[in-house]
Amino acid sequence: MSITVESSPDGATKRTGQRVREALLGWAFLLPAMAIFVTFFYYPLYRLIDMSLHRENRFGTAAPYVGPSQLVDTLSGSDFLEGVKHSGLYMVYTVPLGILLGILLAVAANRRLKGIRVFQTIFSSTVATSVAVASVIFFTLVNPEVGYFKDVSWLSLSNPDTALFSVSLSSVWQNLGLTFIIVLASLQAIPTEVEEAAALDGYGPVRHFLRITVPLISPALMFLAVVLVVAALQAYAQIEVLTNGGPGTSTQTLLFKIADPQGIRPLGIRASMSIGLFALTAIVAAGQYALLSKRVHYGD
């Protein structure tokens, strides 16, 4: 086999026609990706910023330019800050608990036992359930009138102090399937010989898990931390189905306020909040990366 490289006799004075053709070909290759990014990312982002600079009137018929004042007012206003607080709490409630439960289930199911596949299937089933359906199922459990857990005070949806936590539990449950599958897959990717070497070295079960297993599945845990944080910041359907933001505003996360199903906030304010959410997501992701990436070990 041989590879021949065709080079023009004088590379420096390549004919202009050929250069133009190559450039056009390059752009043609870029076009599909560009089209998608422009349509679904860059243009919406431009529109979002544009909207945040205009203030709609009450009827949505006119939107004069107001400059960045609306953005500044919104991001320092109590409505936005309450949204940040609720979204932050939602994150704190769902991410660590979700990862912990996923690890527990995966460790329990990572055995060579008869019928273990049945449990593996059950544990991962929430992946195939839509958020709306899962929320309705969860609602039958916590429904204040007829739910099985209607007397469990810390699960109450009608108490402003517990409603957000209760809703977040439905998220934990819904994400569990994904967490379980990812952790189980990475547990099963640990070479048997490494496990055996650890057993011979003398690690007991707890130290084995903390010193050997956790570092070896750390890339999966990092991935889950990022995915679950994004999921927490984007949670919407479960809130709408379970509490519709109430009681009062106690379950209004930032995203809920932006989506604004009751239509309270003008477009310009929601656009400003979106920019705030964008910034918040970027900050959290950067923080996570800085904090965790040094502890994550990616193979060899």
């Binding site: 070479p191 010989e193 490494v194 055996e196 070497a197 650890a198 011979l200 050997i212 570092p215 070896l216 750390s218 070990h297 193979g299 060899d300």
Partner: peptide, 14 residues
């Protein structure tokens, strides 16, 4: 009180 060397070395990569 034994030590074993494996074909794949079985070192702890982290």
């Amino acid at each position: 009180d034994i030590a074993m060397v494996f074909q794949s070395y079985a070192l702890y990569p982290h």
